[in-house]
Amino acid sequence: ETKGLLFIPDISGFSRFVTESEINHSRMIIQELLELLINANQIGLEVSEIEGDAILFYKFGEPPQLKELYKQVEKMFCQFHKNLMAYDRRKYCQCKACISAANLSLKVITHYGEFTEYHVKNFSKLIGKDVIVAHQLLKNDIAQHEYWLVTKDLLHNHPLADFTGWMNWNDSIKQTESGDIHFHYTQLSELKNEIHDDPLPPLNLSDKRKILSASSLYETDIITLFHIAGAFEYRHLWWEGVEKVEEINHSLPRVGMQSIWTLNNGKMLYYSSSYSYTDDKVEFTETDEKGDQVTYFTLVKIADNKAKLIIDVYKT
């Protein structure tokens, strides 16, 4: 087959001013979002390639019904923003990349046309004038960055439809070497009003008693101390009796992240159960799988280069 759908979700909005160290976090955030978009595929799209902050999906054959396509766009858009809302409320890191992640946006380009697949070793690539057209449509004059773009070729003379009360189609033309490409687009930002983040689990210490407490002063700033004490990845380097820590579910630290600790007397699962941050004080807790033990970490800024760490252990 030489005709098919081209479907490109494209993420934008990261500040160009993130520093070198923050680029690593923006890369991890984008990676997580791209994986989420791939997992949200429900109409049998194939991934051709990941192109920076975008994914080139395709599907040979007749174009899907517009409503089916909208449902796909809606699912990706809602999961994308739900993930960002959840990260914004749960994130440990306060770097520019992690803070500005909440402002990321998603647009989706959908086009129908001719293209073909070719293989180089184990890699498959798409080639054809409409692949170029779909990419050219990413660069356009649409002011906002959250929209769904549908080309006239995809509509196949079917009329446009409003699938929601707020949907409002605009028309435009993109001039390319292949001629004028007529397209329609509708903003998607309204969908964000329908997304609700799952509430954070409450931290309950009322049924527990403090059984241990210790503190120490360090000649360092509070953020550096927090990077070492807060991340599960360094825990085996300082927590006595911990031989290995395997992180399970998140590359960037946040409330809800889980890890399995190999201790000298067996394995335990711990998850991050709460977190709060101000410039002078950072608090976070870790709870065991059964909820019987809570380790309460408090970091206090004493001076620019002096910080205190207090660890309190609570048990049921």
Partner: peptide, 22 residues
């Protein structure tokens, strides 16, 4: 047990110092 656990926790806090120097 309690004294031993406290000593272990204190030792853990001391272990952070060389990590901060890296």
């Amino acid at each position: 047990g309690q004294k031993k656990m406290e000593a272990t926790l204190k030792k853990s806090l001391e272990n952070i110092i060389p990590l901060l120097e890296k």
